[in-house]
Structures are given as C-alpha cells and as structure tokens.
Amino acid sequence: MMTSFKSCLVIFSSLLLFSINFLYAQSESEIENRVRTLANQLRCPTCQSQSVKDSDAGLSLNMKIKIRDLIQKGQSDAEVLDYFVKRYGEWILRSPPKSGFNLLLWIMPGIIMLIATLVLLRSLKQKSRTVDAIGKPSLSKAEDLEISRRFNNVFKNK
C-alpha cells in the first residue's frame, strides 16, 4: 500500500513539474521580453512605488518606447540601463548597483548570517565540550550500531 502510494506521489509531482514547464516555458518575441525585463529594473518617476513596466504613466510609456528603440539600435542591457542612469541618476534603478557605498547594502545580510552561524557553531561546540567534561557522553559507537540494527529490523519486518 505504502509503495503504491509512493509511486502515485512520484507521478503526481513529476506531472506537476513537467506540466508547469511545458505549458509556460514558451518564448514570446525576444525584444519584448528584454524590454519588459529592463523596464522592470527601472523605477517610475511619477508613481514611485511602481516599476516602469507596471506603470501606465506618460513618462513610463515614453521610457518603454525608448528602451525598445535602444535595443533595436543594438545596445546591450547594461548600455540601456546606463542611458537612464546618466539622465536620472542612480535613483532610477530599483536595485542599486553593487558598487561603492551600496556594497554595504548587498553584503551586510550575508555578513550578519555568517556571524550568526559562527556564533551558533561555537556555542554548540562549547556545549558538547562541557557535557563531555561532566561525563555524559553522547551515544557510543556500540549504541549507535545497536540503534541502526534495531532500526533495520523494523524495516525488514515491513
């Protein structure tokens, strides 16, 4: 029963994944996709909580046309973004470039997580050391083996 159930699960999950990919991984016009990706990285100056992509404000429409223009002229993504940064300043980018002062923004979360993990590991090591000193060791090799032997038995019986 368990096995048949498991195979059902396999089929279900694989179906799910595949259907998602086949249904939606179709390509639209290449240029329109690039326009959208780029417009999504720019902040709408009029309605500031939206991206240029999501906004219907006049300026955003102009910007979208401009992006399409620049792409058709053969500019790279970086060049297109640079065009807008030159005119509007860094403010226009919805995700600040990874340079200079902004590095503080990008690396801080990682640093904090790293420090937290290190502190955690250290305190865990200390704990197990104190425990060993008191003489309450974790499971011995023999005990470990015993557990896995019993454990295997349980599964064999199934």
């Binding site: 100056p45 300026l59 102009n62 046309i65 401009k66 300043g89």
Partner: peptide, 13 residues
C-alpha cells in the same frame, strides 16, 4: 513623439 527631450533631462513630473 517619444518624449526624448524630457527623458534627456530626467524629467520626473
């Protein structure tokens, strides 16, 4: 037509 001047000047509103 495509607002080139205002884009050049970084007009926001």
């Amino acid at each position: 037509k495509t607002g080139n001047i205002s884009l050049d000047y970084g007009v926001t509103a």
